[in-house]
Design a protein around this nucleic acid. Sequence first.
DNA 1: ATAGAAGTTAAAGTCAACTTGAGGTCAAGC
DNA 2: GCTTGACCTCAAGTTGACTTTAACTTCTAT
Lengths: 143, 143
Amino acid sequence: MHYSIGEVSDITGIAASTLRYYDREGMFPAMERSSGGIRVFSETELATLKVIACLKSSGMPIKDIKEFLDWCQEGDPSIGKRREMFHRRLTEVESQIAELERTRNMLRYKCWYYDTASEAGTEDAVRDLPDDAIPEDLRDYRI
Amino acid sequence: MHYSIGEVSDITGIAASTLRYYDREGMFPAMERSSGGIRVFSETELATLKVIACLKSSGMPIKDIKEFLDWCQEGDPSIGKRREMFHRRLTEVESQIAELERTRNMLRYKCWYYDTASEAGTEDAVRDLPDDAIPEDLRDYRI
DNA sequence: ATAGAAGTTAAAGTCAACTTGAGGTCAAGC
DNA sequence: GCTTGACCTCAAGTTGACTTTAACTTCTAT
């Protein structure tokens, strides 16, 4: 199947200007053009966009994603590099999750703090409470 | 206890230029200065920095954090607003975690994919494998 | 054949969150 | 008194990831 830039934008929710920007950066090396110079996206480019989305949401910068896509073009000889890259990315995302979970726990503490203050109508009711007045699962996340 | 900007930078790992920038943005409304005009950080500012770190790692922009800190200055009347803000932030972080977990699973699939390709020496060995040749827990994350 | 929607380019603009640079001041030890 | 390192301000620069603009072309439907 073939798609115009507008169709791809509608399918993926990515702005056409962003797709042009990715193209300018060389992320779609195999993309074709109509005789009049109009971009023709195919399944290949849609697959690339999925990989871009995955790597982007793992926090990888565009230029590193571009480098990875270049490795894909090189074929089998670059399998090792690509494998290592994904393992590093996985480790990275796992620590991002751990950090976000810590953040979530601090926010849970703050929610409890403000629920309590809100009920009392004043922060004085919570500010200097001893640790054992704090729900056990939130105690370590007091800030 | 009182700290110089350099000490706070060492304690927190935040660059002195960043601390000055935060100060310029009005995040330390109670911070004092020495007679010579030098910033004197106290426990109050260290506590603020912890809140800033928490909200920043939840993805909140600096100007919204500033707005929250302004609410804190208003005292008890703003407890409701602050409470709602933390509840929204918690919801937000929970969906960020869910999205990152999805990303992690896609990366796990890619790790398996490249482990397999690497062992075989060629991507041909994995590219078009049927779904049931993929580890069950990764099947849904094929990209 | 023509209108208008959708596409094209290159270059400039935007935004957040800092960081850097220039030029000057403060504070502690000798 | 003087050096030296840490501090100060203000303005400008940086980075990444887009987005916008202007001027133009192509495609599609009537």
